[in-house]
Amino acid sequence: MSSNLAAPPATPANGFDPGPLRNAARWHRAEYAFWVLPVLAYFVFAENLSLLSQIAIAALFCLSLDLILGYAGIVSLGHAAFFGVGAYTAGLLAKHGWGDPLLGLGAAAAIAAATGFITSFLVLRGSDLTRLMVTLGVAVMFYEAANKLTAFTGGVDGLQGVEVKPIFGVFGFDLYGKTAYWYSLIVLFIMFCLARRLVHSPFGLSLRGIRQNLTRMPAIGAPVNGRLVAAYTIGAAYAGVAGALLTQTTQFVSLDVLSFSRSAELLLILVLGGTGRLYGALIGTMVFMTAHHFLSGINPQYWQFWLGAALVLVVLFARDGIMGMLQRLHAAGRKAP
């Protein structure tokens, strides 16, 4: 794990020193500590496992948006479309007898990726504003389609009769959500490692370059459109996996997976955590879901009010989110993970 870049020679002929990039790609101590948390949480909050798996799934979903928004800089108000596609794929497969969880994940990723690939050509045209509206439009079309195809998706009542088989034929999903939690967490961790590798690869660096200076990147030979299409497709696949996880752990698909508020909420979580940082997506989700759980228990309406207020404040005063604040606090003598 220590060198995530394909190691170039120590002092290349052209004078380029990859040292700082390689250091940035190295796992930091704080990161190891971070991943101990969910394991501890399993023992500490043993009666709240379903909430914990929800957090893991939301974190994966948020990660997918971070890839396309934080790294590739594609704004999206309709990312729930891919989440929903993944959820329905896994749900329909399981309903019709192919209940193997890993097969479901794979199929969901593939179909969401295909959807993302196709829609990416629509999304990549135009400016930020057009992208916002096209992504929104695509998402509401999916919502409408799922709503109307009642014979297929169950419409407003949701997709019922989802029967998921045990993982590897051994670990069945239990009532307490133990299997569901470990399953979600392990999938999240694997996907996170892949994403981490991706953003520190030359491909990921070129995405960041495209976000920061769209006119210069073609000049140094980066195929901008191709890279963005690839990033959008990968982001869609991630969202699809997250959707499939939700279906498999809850054994149900509600129409809500495609809703506009899910997309909007996701954007909010990411901004709260800090865009353009993988841990921003994870920490944002943890904070958000925990706050949601406890505050909406008190009164759902107040919760929404404070949510809006938090969003306004973040945009006005803390544009780089929780991770940005953490980073500023530890600015001295500490490198960004």
Binding site: A264, L267, L268, V271, Q304, F305, L307, G308, A309, A310, L311, V312, V314, V315, L316
Partner: peptide, 8 residues
């Protein structure tokens, strides 16, 4: 984001 906050 700001205006979505206001909407909420």
């Amino acid at each position: 984001l700001f205006s979505i906050g206001l909407v909420f």
